[in-house]
Computed example of a mutant assay.
Amino acid sequence: MSAESRFIVSPDWVAERLRTPGFAVIDASWYLPAHNRDGKAEYAAGHIPGAVFFDQDEIADKTTGLPHSLPSPEFFAAEMGRRGISDRHTIVVYDGPGFFSAPRVWWMLRIMGASDVYVLNGGFDGWKADGHPVEAELPKPETVSFSPQFAGHRVTTFNAMRDIIASGSRQIADARGAGRFEAAEPEPRPGMRAGHMPGARNLPATAFSKDGRFLSNAELKALFDEAGIDLNGSVVTSCGSGVTAAIITLALESLGHQNNSLYDGSWSEWGSRDDTAIVTGKA
């Protein structure tokens, strides 16, 4: 097993490649109200030179009634193309702190057909701390073609999730904090029940990085072992609204695990219904 994730790149690695043909950078910063941060406003005030902004609330399927649902491949491809990003580009995604919302866009790009996609270690906060350049000028990319090749099997729907729980056929890894998972803390969205899906294991998203930097592969494996996740089996990742679940997906893929999917509706869907099974307390 390699020491570090093959999907994580350093600020120096990115700085060496800025403005080179076929290289693209995406600011995917998105925050919960409790963070008191505005990703779009921060991007406008300063970003990695040449980076384009990915608004996770806008590049979404707004017909579901759920937050930032996965958009159709055609819509996603059009939005990427308008931002000058092709499925053939080498793409680096970042957010403010390092590993909160960026892995979601990393995951989206990959299931839509881009293969050469990475996440910036340390995020934009680390980029600035290392003294790398920042610009406020908004880029004006030329439109290119993004040819989507949607890997639908990497997305779990509500009906599939219900079948998985009924049969116990797949492992479930929940990225929410322990308080929400155990129903010791209320959900941040009104009208939503607290607890977790039967059989789910808790792997809080915050455990996968330290000071904005992703853990080593050995440390990642230890997290899965401690949570009782068998890496030889299939895994569905989930969270509050489908964003931080991708951090678990990133960790799984970093360890070479490919038999995984992400429950896009996550707890926003499961916990808001009155016909779904919910468990409280520890797994």
Score class of each variant (00 low, 15 high):
Lys140Gln: 14
Asp211Ala: 13
Lys40Ser: 09
Ala34Leu: 07
Phe158Arg: 12
Ser101Met: 12
Gly98Ala: 03
Asp264Val: 14
Phe224His: 07
Ala44Leu: 08
Asp130Ser: 10
Ala218Tyr: 03
Gln258Ala: 14
Val144Ser: 07
Ala24Asn: 01
Val279Gln: 13
Ala222Ile: 02
Ile248Cys: 05
Phe76Ile: 00
Ile164Thr: 11
Asn259His: 15
Ile48Tyr: 01
Tyr43Ala: 02
Glu135Asn: 00
Met197Ile: 15
Val14Pro: 01
Arg273Tyr: 07
Phe99Gln: 07
Ser147Ala: 12
Asp38Phe: 03
Gly46Phe: 08
Arg273Ala: 12
Ala166Met: 06
Gly96Trp: 10
Ser101Lys: 06
Ala136His: 04
His47Asp: 01
Val243Gln: 08
Phe146Tyr: 15
Lys210Tyr: 07
Val25Asn: 03
Thr280Cys: 08
Gln171Met: 10
Ala24Phe: 00
Lys140Glu: 14
Trp30Ser: 10
Leu231Asp: 11
Val14Asn: 00
Phe75Leu: 13
Glu79Phe: 03
Arg154Thr: 14
Asn202Arg: 11
Glu226Arg: 13
Glu137Pro: 00
Gly179Phe: 09
Arg83Leu: 03
Asp264Leu: 08
Phe124Asp: 01
Leu18Ala: 00
Ser115Gly: 07
Gly81Ile: 03
Asp27Trp: 00
Asn36Asp: 12
Arg201Phe: 06
Asn217Asp: 13
Ser29Cys: 09
Val134Cys: 01
Glu42Thr: 05
Arg82Gln: 06
Phe100Val: 06
Tyr43Gly: 05
Ala102Asn: 04
Pro204Ile: 05
Phe224Val: 14
Leu215Trp: 00
Met161Thr: 15
Glu79Trp: 06
Pro133Ile: 08
Ala207Lys: 07
Lys62Trp: 03
Ala136Gly: 07
Lys210Pro: 00
Trp270His: 11
Asp27Ile: 00
Asp274Arg: 15
Gln258Lys: 13
Arg104Glu: 06
Ser29Lys: 04
Ser29Asp: 09
Leu223Lys: 15
Met112Arg: 10
Asp95Val: 03
Pro21Phe: 10
Arg273Trp: 06
Ala246Lys: 03
Leu223Ser: 05
Gly179Leu: 09
Tyr94Met: 04
Val105Asp: 01
Glu58Trp: 03
Asn217Trp: 02
Glu253Cys: 07
Trp107Cys: 04
Val93Ser: 03
Glu269Cys: 11
Ala77Gly: 05
Ile8Trp: 04
Lys62Thr: 15
Ala160Tyr: 02
Leu255Ala: 12
Thr276Asp: 06
Gly191Ser: 13
Asp274Thr: 15
Glu137His: 02
